[in-house]
């Protein structure tokens, strides 16, 4: 949960979450324009913002960027390599089990577009994840009139995810210090016990949580006061102009893939 740590400590944490959400979402929408140059511009813009404005260490950003990269690359390969008809003009051709596989100009372009688009999207999401704590996102969702029950559930899940994670870690450590994961057999058994005791703990905790909420006057609706953020007209104007510039850039650089 490294990203979560930065979300609470980065330099953009006091910017209104709705502004950050607006920025990330509109940029993401731009990313759908099939234009490699535009996508690369988005990647570098988000990277620069994260590193220079939010002060996320470049190393951390690049490392987290690597995580989905493998995933994307595997996906790209399946698009790049296709079955081609025998006499077609593929760049590279090879036969496998009587089927001719090959890479064509079109498939390279398609996969390049997909690759850069995925990267741009991931960067947009990372921008949000690195700069905006979950709690703040909930605030925006609340003001967007997302149903209360749904939000309360999300908030509780978010909070107790950490409690459960800590518990499972503790159980795991105690099991392995008693050689619970020595070999495959014991590992399977230990893991089963870990999961079942985690389940029981979650059950019991939920009961205790209800009691604790009740003791503070809970009556079926979780009412809390949230932090207030200043809305910056300047930021909104800035974001809108950046998006406009991206649009102009996309038009000027004309598709890229074509």
């Amino acid at each position: 949960m490294l990203i979560d740590n930065y979300a609470y400590s980065n330099r953009l944490k006091d910017v209104h979450p709705a502004e950050k959400l607006y920025f990330a979402m509109t940029t993401m929408a731009m990313g759908f324009i099939p234009n490699i140059y535009l996508n690369m511009a988005i990647v570098s813009m988000m990277g620069a913002l994260l590193v220079f404005n939010a002060k996320i260490p470049a190393k951390v950003f690049l490392k987290t960027l690597l995580l989905p990269l493998w995933f994307v690359l595997i996906g790209i390969l399946t698009i790049m390599i296709n079955a081609v008809p025998a006499g077609s003009s593929a760049l590279i051709k090879f036969s496998l089990l009587g089927i001719t596989l090959g890479i064509t100009q079109e498939s390279i372009k398609a996969s390049a577009v997909l690759f850069s688009r995925s990267l741009a999207m991931v960067c947009c999401l990372y921008f949000l994840a690195f700069t905006t704590p979950m709690v703040d996102i909930f605030i925006v969702l609340r003001s967007m009139k997302v149903p209360g029950l749904f939000l309360e559930l999300m908030e509780l899940v978010y909070r107790f995810l950490f409690v459960l994670m800590e518990t499972s870690e503790r159980i795991y450590i105690s099991q392995s210090s008693r050689l619970g994961y020595m070999n495959a057999g014991t590992a399977v058994r230990s893991l089963g016990r870990l999961i079942s005791s985690l389940f029981i703990k979650a059950w019991k905790d939920s009961e205790s949580l209800y009691t604790a909420l009740e003791a503070r006057g809970y009556e079926g609706e979780v009412k809390v006061l949230t932090k207030k953020f200043p809305i910056s007209i300047k930021n909104i104007f800035l974001i809108t102009s950046v998006e406009f510039l991206l649009l102009v850039f996309a038009w000027l650089s004309g598709g890229g893939a074509r």
Binding site: P133, M134, V135, F138, E155, L156, Y158, R159, F160, V163, E166, D205, S208, L209, T211, A212, L213, A215, R216, G217, Y218, E219, V222, K223, V224, L225, T226, K227
Partner: peptide, 29 residues
């Protein structure tokens, strides 16, 4: 309102994402 209980395990009592939200729960109610 008059008799407040602090539970033994804070991990069970604390449910909100941030401290401010957490502490505001009682007075909001």
């Amino acid at each position: 309102k008059n008799v407040g209980i602090v539970f033994q395990d804070p991990d069970i009592q604390l449910f909100a994402g941030s401290v401010f939200q957490e502490v505001s729960f009682g007075p909001m109610n």
